[in-house]
Each structure stands twice: as C-alpha cells, then as structure tokens.
Nucleic acid binder design. Structure first.
Lengths: 229, 229
DNA sequence: GCAACTTTGTGCCCGCCTTCACAAGCGGCT
DNA sequence: AGCCGCTTGTGAAGGCGGGCACAAAGTTGC
C-alpha cells in the first residue's frame, strides 16, 4: 500500500512510450483509409520498427490482438489514446512568442492531436496584448494566475536561454508538471516535474558529425579522430 | 589501409555524440564567462549528466584533461568542434516554408552555430520568389540544381506529411546525405543517408502519458493500466 | 469437423550504455 | 623536496532495450 512502486503491475519502458505515440498516429491514418484490422508486420513496416518490438510494446498496454488476423484498428486506437492520456484534451501553455514560439503557437499539429495551446506568454511589451492565432499574448508575470485558472499542467518554453530557468520556475510554481523545453539550457526542476528537451542545433550537430565522419576516412590518414594517440 | 572500419581506433557511441554537442555549447558559455579550466564534475552538473559518463565521453575523442585540475576550456572546445565537424560551416537546405519552416529559417541558433540555412524551397507559388531572412524561396523542383551548385549535404524537411517522402527523394538525389525531418512520417532512404526525426506532437504525447500516469494511481483502483489482467 | 496457414505473445540471449569504484597522475603547500 | 588532496581515465558490473525464434491460438478452406 506504500504509494509508488508496487502499484504498477506493468511499467511501460520509456522507449516504448515514444513508439506508442507513433503507432497511434499511423493507426489514425489507417482508419482514414478504411482499414479495419492491421497486422503487427504491416504496422511495424509503416512506422519503421521491428515487428517483434511492436508486439512487445503493445503487450505492455495489455492489448489483445487476434492471432491469425491482427489488431482491430479502432479498438487499438482507442486503447492507445487512453493509455497515453489523450482521452481528454490537455491545455498547453507556451512561453516565449519569438521566432520559434510563434510557429509553435500556429502549428496545427498540437491542437489537432489533443493539445490545444490555450495560453501564450512573453515579456516583450510589443507582443503582450497581441492575439496570435486567436490567443492573446499575456505577460510572463501572469503565468501563475492564468495557469491555475485554466488548470494547465503542460508548458512549453521557447524563450532565449537566459530567460528559460526563470520562466521554468514560474511554470512550476503555477502547478505545471510537464515541460517541453526548446531553450538550449538544462533546466533545474523539482523531482516531480518532468522535462523533455528539444534542441534543434544539437540535432544538426549530430548530423554534421556523421557527415564529417563519412567524409574524412577517404581523404587521408591523419583524420579527425585518433589525432594524438 | 583498407578504407572503412579499421581506420577508426575508437568508435564514438551515438549517445555520446549527442552529449558532446551539449558539452560544446556549455564550454562556449564558460569561455564567455572567462573560465580557463573546468572539472568534469562542474561541466557534468551544468549539462545534467553523470560526471563519470562525461569523462568517458571525452575519452572517446582522445581528450586529455589535467588530473588535479580539469580540462582546458579553450583546448577542449576546439577539439570538440573538430570532432563534431564544426570547424567549417555546413550549408543547410530547408524544404517547406510553412509555419514551422518559416520559424526555422529565421531561427538564429542555426547560423550562429555553424549551420547557415542557405537554401529555401516550397511548392506554394505565393512563397516562391519571396525572400525570407535574406534568402529567396525557390521551387522544390530546383532542389537538385541548387543543392549541387552550393554543395549542400544537409537538409531539413518541414513540409506536411504527405509531401515529405517525395521531397526526401529529391534531396537524396541531389546529394544530400543527412536529413533532419520534422514531418510526422517515417522516411525511406538508402542506407548511406542518415535521417533524424523531430516529432513535436509525439514529444507532447510522451509528456501527457506521464501526466496521466502520475494522476491516475491516486484516484482509485481501476486505472488506465492493468485493465484486463 | 479437420487440417493448414497466419499471426500474436513472449522467453531468451546479446550488445550497448550507464554507473560505481579505484588506481594513477598532477599541482600546490609546507 | 616531499607529501597531500584533487581530478582524470578506465576496468568491471549491472540494467535496459532490441531482436530472434517458437509455441499458442485463432481463422480459413474443404
């Protein structure tokens, strides 16, 4: 009866959760195309994963496909939505309406997938009071009031790096438990708050690394690695 | 002398590469603050990783810190830049100048970090010919010519999902070897092309999953998981 | 009603990554 | 000059996730 560990009969691995979301989207497309059932092989091919892995992922959510047939698209979709907590819409707050933030506010992929951005914040006086996509930009200092009032528990930070930690603190104080961070900063948060980081520059740097890796060995001996052995 | 495998005395693990980029940025900040040396403990704390992991990461690039002191900030920075292939700027092509694409084109974080976006493409006639951030938007069909001419090997795809695969094919045909994909689609590419995917909606869904996970156990027994044991 | 085929669910193994722990090395202090 | 304390680099162990392969289970055709 101690809260926490023993209440979870099956813990879903982090990596699986990420894939479940991908399966869900693909199921949506399949449903639109009129498919009623789908085999693990088909769904795996469409989402780019191993079919055994996919079946194992689905087994975590207690899903029951039909052997010899596959999975019922509608049922699986519904089940995935419930497990992922998408059966009710989750309001999202976005802080920082600059270049990236503006795009995020207008990005249809969020609202269409159950995450309407219902609050926008910035510090720029020129932006505060301006409506973007039908939402009024409010001053950052209004975060506690607005988030509490609208019951917002998910926040996105798209501010410059220097401002991110302060904004983060405000969000946490306002009751936000999950944060998607686009600022190139490692946020310090209490343990009960979850942060996911999306770092676009780092993504490009990883690509660049592989580019240079593939290019150098063909040039000559003293390549980028093994320089001072 | 056989090209390929044996020229690499140490293979850098994927997970390490991603962190190296993060270390690099933090080193930049430290350098601005005038720090001359940094210990693995400090740098690890600042980037949110375990210090032993950090040291192992750095050991992959043949780095030599000074025991009892730490790492020389300047030297380490320089070395990281070389290993990550950032010693020369890499031009980047961006396809899809919609909501997200527009923001990416204007995002200062790329050019500032050695990845100037030097080519923009779209199919929308209203966008083609319009300059964004000083770059003229060209038609998608110009991809081969432009990429070849400017020696572009890195591409970003920020189109709607349906268009992504076709655009991807064009980029690959144009000689692009690395692709950062923002479209919610699994791209099919030849083996020598590397794709990294950034899926914003999925990121939010992962957060939502944990939100509902934390909320449900406190409510009552028949929670979302363990429904049909 | 039976046989053959299809597809799921999962046990097992393997490899990668993370973390601990500690010896070796270097600078500063006396 | 020698000792002490700090920090690096790395061997070893543990855990997690991925993939193979197969038995169980259901369906279709005859």
């Amino acid at each position: 009866m101690t809260p926490g560990q023993d209440t979870a009969p099956r813990v879903i691995p982090e990596a699986s959760v990420a894939r479940l979301a991908v399966y869900l989207r693909m199921l949506g497309e399949l449903a639109e195309q009129g498919a009623e059932t789908v085999s693990s092989e088909e769904l795996a091919a469409a989402t780019g994963v191993n079919s055994a892995k996919l079946r194992k992922d689905l087994s975590y959510i207690g899903s029951h496909g039909i052997r010899g047939v596959g999975y019922d698209v509608r049922a699986l979709r519904y089940q995935l939505e419930r497990v992922l907590g998408l059966d009710h819409r989750q309001a999202v707050a976005l802080v920082g309406v600059g270049n990236l933030g503006h795009a995020l506010a207008g990005y249809g992929g969020f609202g269409g997938r159950g995450f309407p951005v219902t609050a926008l914040f910035d510090v720029d006086p020129d932006l505060v009071g301006v409506p973007i996509n039908g939402i009024l930009v409010e001053h950052v200092r209004a975060i506690p009031a607005v988030c509490a009032e609208r019951g917002i528990t998910i926040g996105m930070i798209a501010t410059p790096g220097q401002a991110a930690q302060a904004v983060c603190n405000q969000l946490v104080a306002a009751g936000v438990r999950s944060i998607l961070n686009f600022a190139p900063v490692v946020l310090q948060v209490p343990r009960e708050v979850e942060v996911r980081k999306v770092d676009l520059a780092v993504e490009l740097q990883i690509l660049a690394f592989h580019v240079s890796r593939r290019a150098e060995p063909a040039v000559n001996g003293h390549a980028v690695n093994g320089v001072l052995p």
